[in-house]
């Protein structure tokens, strides 16, 4: 564990709390992509199968359980109590392409050919692309409320911190490298590029998230 990874994990945790608070406060899921939330649930379900296979640390186990439970809860909220506020026509990105792409890359380049390893690779590639429906919806409508942009910023920030973590691990842990995590992580962070720019130039200056 290092400070970058811990900060990244905590920011990831914060992003989920921000989203749940937003859903509870506004009693609406307008502006939030259900498809992105479904993808995160699928990401955690396929990656954290290893909860049953091995033990890393209490921290690791508790975080995994939290991510699984919270993503299930968010999907439940959007699917059931808040369903009336969900506008399907705005959430129109075809996620089939993302899932198929992640599956093909996972099958082509896993660390090892076993069910758990291929699913792990799938979850890493899927996570790197899972934000696309959310960003797509924000681009389509051209705006987002502030708390939604804080949510997306926290998610992007978590990934940026993980990249610093990998640099740190490379130098401190005998050239540690996990190329799948690295490639997917770089792609994932890059996807947030435009968003970060608008967030910093507008939202942090007290304006709303609006595309020019």
């Amino acid at each position: 564990m290092n400070i970058f990874r811990l900060s990244g994990d905590l920011l990831h945790l914060a992003s989920i709390f921000i989203l749940i608070a937003r859903l509870h406060q506004t009693k609406s899921c307008a502006g939030i992509s259900l498809k992105t939330q479904y993808l995160y649930l699928l990401v955690f379900a396929t990656r954290y199968l290893d909860l049953f296979l091995g033990f890393v640390s209490v921290y690791n186990t508790l975080m995994k359980i939290f991510f699984l439970a919270s993503s299930g809860y968010i999907v439940y909220l959007m699917y059931s109590p808040l369903k009336a506020s969900y506008d399907k026509s705005l959430d129109s990105f075809r996620v089939e392409y993302i899932i198929a792409f992640a599956a093909v890359v996972a099958l082509a380049f896993p660390h090892k050919y076993s069910v758990v390893e291929v699913l792990w690779s799938f979850s890493i590639y899927l996570e790197s692309l899972a934000i696309i429906p959310q960003l797509f919806q924000m681009t389509r409508t051209g705006e987002a409320d502030n708390i939604t942009s804080h949510y997306v910023f926290a998610l992007g920030g978590y990934r940026a911190l993980y990249m610093l973590n990998w640099f740190y691990r490379y130098y401190t842990e005998d050239n540690y490298v996990d190329y799948i995590s690295w490639i997917a992580g770089i792609v994932q962070t890059a996807l947030y590029g435009d968003f970060f720019y608008i967030y910093i130039t507008r939202v942090l200056k007290g304006k709303s998230f609006k595309l020019p």
């Binding site: 994990d9 290893d50 975080m63 660390h111 996990d178 995590s181």
Partner: peptide
């Protein structure tokens, strides 16, 4: 260390 089984990150 077997990199493939070292998934210690979240």
């Amino acid at each position: 260390m077997d990199r493939a089984s070292a998934h210690d990150e979240l």
